[in-house]
Structures are given as C-alpha cells and as structure tokens.
Amino acid sequence: MAPVLEIKSLVKHFLFVTDGVILRKYKMLKAVDGVSFSVDKGACFGIAGESGSGKTTISRLILLLEKITSGKILYEGKDISKLARKDILWYRMRVQTIFQDAASSLNPRMRVRDIVSEPLEVQLGKTLTKKEIMERTEEMIRLVGLPTDKLANYPHELSGGQKQRVAIAKAVILHPALVILDEPVSALDVSIRAQILNLLSDIQAQQDLTYLIIAHDLAMLQHVTTDIGVMYLGKIVETGKTENVFNEPLHPYTKALFAAVPWPVPGRVKKAPSLKGEIGNPLDPPSGCRFHQRCEYAKRICREAEPLLVETRPGHSVACHKINEPLWRAS
C-alpha cells in the first residue's frame, strides 16, 4: 500500500548558546539525526524511546511547528517543507494531532461546542452553513461517547477522560488522513486508558485513519500498533512490524527496554539486564554507536563507526554492529 507519510533522513538540530555574552559560543543539539521511516495508509505506527530521544521533535516537524534542518518529510508524495500557503492550509486539514495533556489542549475560555467546531469553521466555514457545522459537531461529540449536553460546558467542568474525548473529537472532525498521537493516554487514569484506546481504534476503523503514536509505554504500543520504531538519542535503532520486533527484539537497547516492562507472566525470569546509566547527552553524543556506553556487547567497532539501519529480515531492520556484522561477512 502507498505510504501516507514518508520520512527520509530527517535531521533537526537546535542551536544553543552555551557561553559568552559578546562572542557567543554555540552548541548543536542533535534532536533528530537522520531518521527514516514510512507510515502506510491505515497503519498505526508507534515510536518508542526514552525521554530526550527526539520522539516529540519528529511530531513537531511533521506538524510544521519547527523548520527541518535537512532531510524530507513527504505527505502523499509531496514535500511538506515546499508547500505553498494555500497547500499548507490543506495539509493542516489532513494532518491533526492529539497531545498528552488534554487539560491544556482545550482553551479554558471556550465552550466545548466552540472547541470542537473550530476546525470546521476555520477550514470549511465558507462552504458549510452554521446549522451544518452544529450538526456535524453534535454527531462528532456523540461519536466520542459524550452526551450532547456537554457541548455547553467549559473544559474545567469535564473530567480528564472527557477532556481527552473532546480533544479527539476536535482532531477528527475534519476527517483527517493522519493523526499524530503524542502520549495520548499517559496522563490518564489506568482505568480510563483502555476506554480511550478502544475509542481511538474504533474511530480509526470507521474513518480509515492512519495513526502515528508517540509513547514510552511499550505494553500499550504492542497492543495498538502495527509497526514500531525504537528511538535512541535522535536515531531509530530498530524498526519493523510490531509482532516481529516484540517477539524477537534484536538491538540490545530494545531488549533492555522490553526487559524493563513488567509483563504479568508467572514464572518469567528477567533475561536481559536492565539499562545502566543515563541516556547520553544529546549536546555531545557518544562517538560511533550512540548506545555503546550502555551496551554490554560493545566492542571497538561500536565506539568508532556508526551502525547503519539494515533490514535483517523482511519487515525488521536494526542498527547494530553485533547483529549486522555477521550479515556483511556472509554476503
């Protein structure tokens, strides 16, 4: 199937002033450093990784909230950094997002009705009548499982789960093609998470949506995603079909991450050791493989050369010398 979103060696560097008043010293923060992946239509692509690995920066780049340093983001084959003004408005209709904190995603001074209907007003206000907008808003609020009398409420009168439902209604009211979910449930009570995730997958099936989920909750990602990419310090270290990656994680970092998840399996013995140390400093990333300082298999080559993302088997790629070296020798 044709990919909705293609990301090609995407790089985002932030310039930071580290020292000096007149003669300033800058340092480059490599938040995203050469990331490539593609999201197929109807898929649910998950991006996992620790905080500071660059997950959210990728979402901000896709949403045109930051300028790309280099690389390309293609939406349905079009380079989004080269869109004309009119096309940007169109793109903003096709790509929507839901943030982690529903409470601050909703304008405290607007009623639910105005919050949910705003995208319609902005994008289709000229073609739709007031009545049609209201009808579609009511339909949408019912779709996310809220009674229509909540439309007259202000956000602070709703519970956390209800707020996230309103945020979802606002995001999907334009029938977008791609929705970016940045930690959609991690701010919610555990009891409400499943409800919201089910609602999201119902809406996906109904409206033929593509999701890009950014999260650190691996159990959740395994449950809802079709493909997954694991990020470490601005790079994707392992990517592939969710079942492949979860059944047989190859990269030592992925293994360690999965080992840290408390799966409720009786008699399960922890196989991989948990991670040592902190995530490296993105202002001064380690040489070679960025994970080598925390990796128990690290050899000289890991310190010197950066491993490339290589497809080790269909639908499963990994960037690790230990895994890829034998493959190269064989070929």
Binding site: R92, V95, F99, S105, N107, L174
Partner: peptide, 13 residues
C-alpha cells in the same frame, strides 16, 4: 500552551 499550538495545527490564522 497546547491549545494555541493546536489552533495553529488546525489552520487558524
């Protein structure tokens, strides 16, 4: 704040 960022993402002028 997120709601302002979201407004931008929705295409508000």
């Amino acid at each position: 704040r997120e709601f302002v960022v979201l407004a931008k993402v929705t295409g508000c002028s």
